[in-house]
Amino acid sequence: MIGALKGESHRCEFDGVETVPTATGRYCYVPTIHKVKLGEIVDLLRQFAEMPKTLMIPEIPNYSFAKKLYSTFLSYLPKEKAIFDLKMNIDDRGSFTELVHTINCGQVSINISKPGIIKGQHWHHTKWEQFIVVSGHGLIQQRKEGTDEVIEYEVSGDHIQSVIMLPGYTHNIINLSDTQDLVTVMYCNEVFDPNRPDTFFDPVDK
């Protein structure tokens, strides 16, 4: 439509009911058409509206109707709904906050550890994670279950790196600072399921 308003419309002729694109065609046509049932639109809009509660981003493949509908939905979002609270799980060690869930690609969270604190000390069967320290100075340790060898990665927000927590390796993250919080972005390939947590306690350094 914007192209048509600028005099740059897509032109065509018709072979029966079939569109035949041609630069000098007598008719305007829309090059991309999506055929979607009303029920699917309703389901998508419901998912979009519930996102602040579920944190779940719907499947929105590139160039899909869902992606375009989501952008349209957001463009009409009242300004007071463009901000929403996240649940911060806070204890004396710091906090852990889930940011985004996805249907097939897991979740992203933010972890804040107070000075001197160790978090983790567990391993997973099939779940894997990536830790990205964005502020502070920390040490990530991993030990393959059944062995004594400990792998260590010293990390800092001054040089941002991604460290993969390997399945079958018990792991932790230690805040090495005496004064500064350690802030870590954590990606996990699965959304946490309390019925199947796939998380087993075992200290890295026995």
Rank of each mutant, 00 (worst) to 15 (best):
H10W: 08
R93C: 09
F84L: 14
Y187N: 07
K79G: 05
V150A: 07
T97V: 14
K119Y: 01
K79M: 10
I151G: 13
E154C: 13
Y63H: 15
I173Y: 00
T19W: 00
E98T: 12
T179K: 10
T126A: 15
N189A: 12
D158M: 08
K35W: 03
S71D: 15
Y187M: 09
D181E: 08
D158T: 15
L77H: 13
Y169N: 02
Q130F: 14
T147N: 10
K119P: 03
K68D: 13
E59D: 11
H137R: 08
K68R: 14
N175R: 00
K119N: 05
R93L: 03
I174H: 02
G136I: 00
P58S: 01
V183Q: 09
G94Y: 02
Q121M: 11
I117V: 08
F73N: 01
S113Y: 00
M186E: 12
T102C: 10
S177D: 08
C28W: 13
K206Y: 03
G39R: 08
T102A: 12
D178W: 04
F192N: 07
M165S: 02
K206I: 06
G16C: 02
A66E: 08
I160T: 12
E149R: 12
V155F: 06
S135H: 10
S162D: 03
K81V: 05
P194D: 06
T19G: 01
C28F: 15
P78N: 05
L99V: 10
G39S: 07
N189D: 13
P58T: 01
F73R: 03
M51S: 10
V183E: 11
P197H: 03
V163D: 01
I118P: 04
C12M: 01
S64E: 11
F84G: 14
Q161V: 14
W128C: 05
G136Y: 00
V183M: 14
P58A: 02
G138E: 02
K114M: 01
V133A: 07
V100Y: 05
K79R: 14
G157Y: 03
Q130A: 11
S75I: 11
R196C: 11
H125S: 09
I173R: 00
F200N: 09
F84E: 07
I132E: 10
I83Y: 12
T147C: 09
P194K: 06
M165A: 09
N104R: 07
Y76N: 13
A49H: 15
Q161P: 09
T32L: 10
I160A: 14
G157E: 00
V155D: 05
D178G: 02
N189V: 13
E8I: 04
L38A: 13
I117Y: 00
L139C: 15
C28R: 14
G138F: 01
K37S: 06
K68M: 15
M165T: 06
G120C: 03
E80C: 15
D202F: 07
H34I: 03
T170W: 01
H10F: 07
I112F: 11
D198M: 04
G146H: 04
D178V: 01
N195I: 06
T147R: 13
H159P: 11
P52S: 10
